[in-house]
């Protein structure tokens, strides 16, 4: 794979290689953007709104998004609902089973920072981006179908802006914490909780 990564650099040096690359970018990005196959990861209330978005009135199919059951054939994971600590290892496992150009939409307040379950709840993981890198957060509890469609369109614009061969920068950066060599998994801006404060079920430690 890494040979392919070097090609864009060489092509740029050819006289009008740049135009060729942007043309290639345009075609690939538009193809990827307009045919995102999503894997419904319905946990709670947001799953019902996701189904309502997939139904007749607001239709995902108009954006070219079909529902695929297996993680192997999907390239967008919509985490819809509250993520509990017992469920966290499974989400991570599924994320890793997806083929590479993969994106994550975190739908609903619970996936951003625990939402209504931030206080007084011992079993809810405060934010999905603690275990998987998230591209688009859709606010709302549950977010309206229009908000979710808006999130998908925002993701499409994000994809159209990509460059072939460039490393994608993802929000929720992951540094390795030297003490526990566990990925720090903490958003620099919130910085609310350090990993050793959260007692993760140990399968999660094995996996991450």
């Amino acid at each position: 794979m890494d040979l392919i990564k070097k090609i864009p650099a060489y092509v740029e040096r050819i006289p009008n290689g740049g135009i060729l690359m942007t043309g290639l970018d345009w075609v690939l990005n538009n193809a990827k953007a307009s045919s995102m196959w999503y894997m419904l990861f319905g946990l709670a209330c947001c799953a019902i709104e996701l189904m309502a978005t997939g139904a007749s009135r607001y239709d995902f199919d108009r954006l070219g998004m079909i529902f695929r059951a297996t993680p192997r054939q999907t390239d967008l994971m919509i985490v819809a609902g509250t993520l509990t600590l017992k469920m966290a290892p499974r989400v991570k496992l599924l994320y890793e089973q997806m083929p590479d150009p993969k994106y994550v939409i975190a739908m609903g307040g619970c996936t951003m920072h625990g939402g209504p379950f931030y206080h007084d709840s011992y079993s809810v993981l405060k934010g999905v981006d603690k275990i998987i890198p998230v591209d688009i957060h859709v606010a709302g509890c549950p977010p309206r179908p229009e908000a979710l469609m808006n999130g998908c369109i925002a993701l499409q614009d994000l994809i159209r802006g990509e460059k072939v061969g460039r490393k994608r920068d993802r929000p929720g950066l992951r540094h390795i914490d030297p003490a526990t060599n566990l990925p720090l998994l903490v958003r620099p801006d919130t910085g609310l909780i350090r990993p050793n404060q959260i007692i993760m079920p140990d399968q999660l430690r094995v996996l991450s």
């Binding site: 193809a31 089973q97 150009p101």
Partner: peptide
Amino acid sequence: AADAIKLLVKELI
């Protein structure tokens, strides 16, 4: 066509 090109670019696991 978009589906086909996207599947071409996908990683083969």
